[in-house]
Simulated scan of single mutants.
Amino acid sequence: MAYLDHAATTPMLPEAAAAMTAQFAATGNASSLHAAGRRARRTVEEAREAFAEAIGARPSEVVFTAGGTEADNLAVKGLYWARRDAEPARTRVIASPVEHHAVLDAVHWLAEHEGAQVDYLPVDRYGRVHPDAFREAVERNPDDVALATVMWANNEIGTVMPVRELADIAREAGIPLHSDAVQAFGQLDVDFGDSGLAAMTVSGHKIGGPYGIGALLLGRDQSPVPVLHGGGQERHVRSGTLDVPAVAAFAVAAVIAAERREQFAAEVGALRDELVAAVLAAVPDAVLGGDPEERLPANAHFSFPGCEGDSLLLLLDAQGIECSTGSACTAGVAQPSHVLLAAGTDPQLARGTLRFSLGHTSTKEDVAALASAIGPAVERARTAGLS
Rank of each mutant, 00 (worst) to 15 (best):
P142V: 12
P142F: 13
P142C: 12
D143F: 15
V145Y: 12
A146E: 01
L147Y: 06
L147S: 10
A148K: 00
T149M: 10
T149D: 07
V150C: 10
M151H: 15
M151L: 15
W152V: 07
W152Q: 08
W152M: 02
E156Y: 14
G158F: 13
T159F: 02
T159H: 14
V160G: 15
R164W: 13
L166M: 13
L166G: 10
I169H: 11
E172P: 10
P176N: 11
H178E: 06
H178N: 05
D180T: 04
A184T: 06
F185N: 11
G186M: 06
Q187F: 11
D189G: 04
D191C: 09
G193N: 10
D194M: 03
L197G: 08
A198F: 01
M200V: 00
T201I: 00
S203H: 03
G204V: 04
H205P: 01
G209S: 07
G209H: 04
G209L: 05
G212A: 13
G214M: 15
A215W: 15
L216R: 08
L217Y: 08
L217A: 08
G219K: 04
Q222A: 01
P224D: 11
P224N: 08
V225G: 05
V227R: 15
V227C: 15
L228C: 12
L228M: 12
L228G: 03
G232N: 05
G232F: 07
Q233N: 15
Q233P: 02
R235Y: 05
H236T: 02
R238H: 10
S239A: 15
G240N: 14
G240I: 15
L242Y: 03
L242W: 08
L242D: 02
A246Q: 03
A246G: 01
V247D: 12
A248H: 08
A249L: 14
A249F: 07
A249N: 05
A254N: 00
A257F: 13
A257Q: 11
A257C: 03
